[in-house]
Simulated assay, not measured.
Amino acid sequence: PATGVSIGVDRLLAALREKGSMGGVATGPVVVTVMDRDRMADYQAMVAELRNAGIRAEMYLGNPKNFGNQLKYADKRNSPVAVIEGGDEKDRGVVQVKDLILGAKIAESATHEEWKERPSQFEIGRGDLVAKVREIIASQSDGQAD
C-alpha cells in the first residue's frame, strides 16, 4: 500500500561533504541557557527576539541543574554563542553572552595570562542582546576568512 524509494538525505550530504562539494560544518543556533525553570517565558522571549532579528536561536530544553551540560549541548550544536541569564543578572538588567568559538580557540593554545586578556564572555545590558550577538557572529565569520 505504501512504497517509496529514498537515497537517504543524510548519506547524500555526508558524501557531498567528503568530496568537498559542500561547505564545511554549518554554524548552529545561538543557545539560550536555562538557569531557572520558573523563568522559561523570559528565556523564550530572548529566543523570539533573536529569531525576529534573523538570528537562528533555540532554548536549552534539558535539565537545567547541570550548567556544564548546557554548554556541552551548545558545543554539540556547533553554536557560535551562548546566552546566560541567572537571577542576579535578571535583577541587574544584564545578560552574559559567551563567544563559544573564540573561547574554544583561546582554550586550545593560550596561556592563562592571554586567556585573561581576551575574554570570551561579556556582560551586557539586556537591551543590547541582539546587537552583541550580531557583533560576535560577524567577528567569527571574519576570523574564518583569515
Rank of each mutant, 00 (worst) to 15 (best):
G24F: 05
M59A: 11
S120M: 04
D146S: 14
R11P: 04
L100Q: 05
A41V: 15
A45P: 03
E89Y: 04
P29M: 03
P119C: 09
T3Q: 11
G54P: 07
V30N: 00
Q121H: 07
M22N: 10
E114H: 03
D88W: 10
G28M: 03
A145G: 03
E135Y: 08
D99C: 01
D88T: 13
D99R: 02
V30I: 01
D38W: 08
P64V: 09
R51I: 06
N52L: 11
D146Y: 12
V47N: 03
E49Q: 12
E117Y: 00
A138D: 14
A45F: 07
A41Q: 15
E113F: 07
A82R: 03
M46Y: 10
L71P: 02
A107E: 12
N69G: 11
G62I: 09
G8M: 04
L71W: 03
P1F: 12
K65F: 02
A82G: 08
N69A: 12
K116C: 04
D142F: 05
N78H: 09
L12K: 00
K76P: 04
A131V: 06
M40N: 07
V97R: 00
K105F: 11
V30M: 02
I55K: 00
A57G: 03
G86V: 10
G24Y: 04
F67A: 09
L16T: 05
P1Y: 11
A74F: 10
L13I: 15
R17S: 13
A57C: 02
P119W: 09
G20H: 01
G54L: 09
K72A: 13
A48S: 15
A107C: 02
V47F: 06
G24M: 06
F122V: 07
G125A: 14
V133R: 07
Q70M: 05
V32E: 00
K72W: 11
A15S: 06
L13F: 10
D38K: 15
V25R: 10
R77T: 00
N63W: 00
V34H: 03
K132F: 07
V130F: 10
A131T: 06
T111G: 13
V31Q: 03
D142L: 09
F122Y: 14
G62N: 08
S109D: 12
A15F: 05
G127P: 04
R56L: 10
Q96D: 13
A57P: 01
E117N: 06
V32H: 00
A14N: 06
P80Y: 09
A2I: 14
P64R: 06
Y73D: 10
R39L: 13
Q96L: 15
Q70S: 01
